[in-house]
Write a protein that binds this DNA or RNA. Structure first.
Lengths: 188, 188
DNA sequence: TTCATTTCTTAAACTAGTTTAAGTTTTTTC
DNA sequence: GAAAAAACTTAAACTAGTTTAAGAAATGAA
């Protein structure tokens, strides 16, 4: 969990004692590619930090097709926040795209941890506020640009990420079909 | 700002002294229909709570067309959070759809206020977490359903809201053209 | 009340993107 | 290494939704 500690230290100060406390509230989970952290219908009891690897969040539509709405790279948090917040059944799956390591903080432990280390309260607020800010921008792109334009921008901004995932996952995330993605790639 | 106080008391406890402190950090602004809280290019220096009325957040695309991405009803917060968080130029406009009253908390004052009233730290985290949770669900609907289906669901879930705004704003928010909305309404 | 502006409706022509139905290539499994 | 499975490509037929171009109705301003 070295990544996690380094990441936290960019936001808050933590001495050795505090690190010990933190460590007692979180656990590290190793996932094989395709292992699940969450399945639809389960209650999402935890918040997940991607220590290493890559996760995806998706739902299955009524035609049985998987639709990816989110990825989580190293140093990103991921959760079904509606389920996490309301402790209601999840609408999404969270699955490892590749072998991964994840830091898990369970809902009730997060609240206790914050009581022990109050500086984490601000940390979690800033992190989720940034995620929300990013989602506001993401909505703007959805409204503003065509799917082709969004594809081209995405490839140009995140070439390494695009190499890292199968094309059909990229298509799913961008809301287009694999066939259309092939066509766009052919167009150059 | 009675709404604001009542709303806060659902989440945190505030005695009379604390209410006084809070009041000294926020201000109430009355807006006429079409008045702006924020324009693109300005830095969004505040977080806004809708005490009364209705706000909309939109951007102008390269064809000069307004695209609404969000509304804020009574008791809702609204801000361009990327601009608010990073103190960078805003991509959005925030404007009153009707005559409104807004509670304004400036960025630096919010941080000071939280120091004075630490229970607000958790309040803001929970609020933004809920907003993010809702945005995850909203992405799901974008991916999952056609624009027509989303329109029909929206009308059925929020009939009063739909009465409250002009049809072209509803169309804009749902990402469809006013012409197509007219067609859908005709279809019944 | 009149006039100007905004909003809503109508419909045909158009298009971004999907669906259908394979075939080909790459990766995984045993 | 062979076979199966998954991923990718191809292209024609199709469609959800847009664009274009008005006209009609409602609202706002003077």
């Amino acid at each position: 969990m070295q990544n996690f500690i380094n990441h936290l230290k960019k936001y808050i100060t933590l001495n050795e004692d505090e690190l010990q406390i933190l460590s007692s509230y979180v656990k590290t989970v190793s996932l094989k590619k395709k292992d699940f952290l969450l399945k639809e219908g389960q209650v999402c009891k935890a918040n997940y930090f991607t220590e290493k690897g890559l996760l995806r969040m998706y739902f299955i539509n009524d035609k049985g097709v998987e639709q990816i709405t989110q990825f989580a790279l190293e140093n990103w948090w991921i959760s079904d926040y509606m389920s996490f917040t309301m402790q209601s059944p999840a609408h999404f799956y969270i699955q490892a795209v590749e072998n991964s390591e994840v830091i898990v903080i369970e809902h009730h432990k997060q609240e206790e941890l914050i009581k022990q280390l109050p500086q984490l309260e601000k940390y979690f607020r800033i992190i989720i506020q940034r995620a929300y800010a990013a989602s506001q921008m993401r909505f703007k792109y959805f409204y503003d640009y065509s799917k082709e334009e969004n594809y081209r921008q995405f490839v140009s901004l995140f070439p390494e990420f695009v190499q890292r995932i199968p094309q059909y996952m990229l298509a799913s995330y961008l809301g287009l079909t694999p066939e259309y993605l092939s066509e766009l790639r052919k167009k150059g």
